[in-house]
Design a protein around this nucleic acid. Structure first.
Lengths: 245, 245
DNA sequence: CGAAGTCTTGAAGAGCTTCAATACGCGTGG
DNA sequence: CCACGCGTATTGAAGCTCTTCAAGACTTCG
């Protein structure tokens, strides 16, 4: 990636939120990335069973990790936003155990695994930060699992929207509790583990109670405090604080 | 930990399953661990909000990660067996976002975070392996989330037992498809996200169909193939193959 | 303007939860 | 050795949440 390019800004913002990064670290990362590409909605970034030789960082758009069972049932196990490293996992795990799919058009940059290996050999602090990013993802899926296990449909949906608000805000992707979320309810259903019908009814419920609106792909959280309470939301798992790591 | 001590064997076995480790790496790890301790059942290894200065490796017993919501609902988000590093996470994340609880008496050893930091500074390959261990945990919770989202109660329970069989076997903790699992059904309920009553009924179902037995804390998988099919189980997510990492 | 996808609503039914009661297993004390 | 008590397991029955099936409305786009 060429120098002076600031398309990586959302990613560095993500990192800086958790710890200070040095000029050397920033330069090493910038050098490691290839040029940006755009991929269309519904395209796959990686498929289960693949052995990618590069990892992918998202500069814009929304993508998801998804598992499809033999019986055709599908569960989305992560949502990725601008600035997220979407399959840093594959650098360490080697084989993909799920699919990664673009939900909207996405701008991505790839980084060869050899470059990541070089980073782990030379820049231990940066390595720990990359490790951190993967563990934050793990924390998010843990919290989703809690929701799928013990939260009701309404709580689960409230939690998802409040999490999105928090993550979008941290990434500078909101204004006035409004953010772009241009996906169909079918996608929501696969995140929440609900039927399409009940997803719709649950959404209508949140809307009718004035907690949020969602029209033409734009979500507005109308009453953040009530939504958070409804969701039993606790932001600890997002690890949004800066510390020496 | 004193030299020549082979209580770390189950842990090294876990690592060796995924990649070759050098003598230097093995020595560095062995030195890093403190002396073993035993902790009683139901005791907490770490609590949500804690900022541990050491990470914990389990040499024997069964422990779990668990999240309790404000309304008292509880979900278990991981099970750890002998040889598992149970909160390597805290080294990178710093603050605990869930509890870690011993389900049985456990033998544990601790490793100070400064030692782990030293490892990341000097031994990049070993660092990648430790990173790997945390990502395998993340893969397991992803698969649990899939179960909580789209698998039925029977499929989910079948999946749990088949996963345990596979993990226990990989850790050398089985003989003839039998392994020790001395926890009450109440614990199972918190793993599966079911009520106590339905957990019991689901278990009775699996038993009556001759898929498994579970008496006095000992599980025997009577028909592994049918159990695996029932569970829609696919072991990719356990990453049990050895590769250059 | 028509067609395809998405959203919304109604109604019946399944899976799971809740409430309630009984049975079992095990350690303790009489 | 039996009686008691407590935690765990099991079973019955009613009820609620969510699913499934089905139909109609809205939206977007050629």
């Amino acid at each position: 990636m060429t120098n002076g390019d600031d398309r990586l800004a959302p990613f560095f913002r993500r990192l800086e939120l958790r710890d200070k990064i040095s000029e050397e670290e920033r330069a090493a990362l910038t050098r490691a990335f290839e040029t940006a590409e755009t991929i269309p909605p519904q395209s796959y970034v990686a498929r289960e069973g693949d052995r990618p030789s590069k990892s992918v960082l998202m500069l814009s758009g929304i993508s998801c990790r998804t598992r499809t069972l033999r019986n055709g049932e599908r569960q989305i196990v992560a949502l990725h936003l601008a600035g997220d490293f979407i399959d840093l996992h594959s650098f360490v795990l080697k084989e993909m155990d799920h699919d990664v799919e673009a939900l909207t058009a996405c701008t991505i940059v790839r980084v060869p695994h050899e470059e990541l290996e070089r980073i782990t050999e030379r820049l231990p602090h940066l390595t720990r930060l990359l490790w951190l990013l993967t563990l934050i993802d793990a924390g998010i899926i843990r919290e989703w699992a809690v929701g799928l296990g013990v939260r009701s449909a309404v709580q689960r949906m409230a939690h998802l929207f409040y999490e999105l608000l928090t993550r979008m805000r941290a990434g500078g992707l909101t204004s006035d509790n409004t953010f772009s979320f241009p996906v169909p309810q079918t996608t929501l259903k696969d995140i929440l583990g609900l039927s399409a019908v009940h997803t719709n009814r649950t959404l209508m419920d949140l809307r009718s109670r004035g907690l949020l609106s969602w029209e033409k792909g734009v979500v507005t959280i109308l009453d953040p405090d009530r939504l958070r309470d409804e969701a039993l939301f606790d932001e600890t798992y997002l690890h949004l604080h800066r510390e020496r790591r």
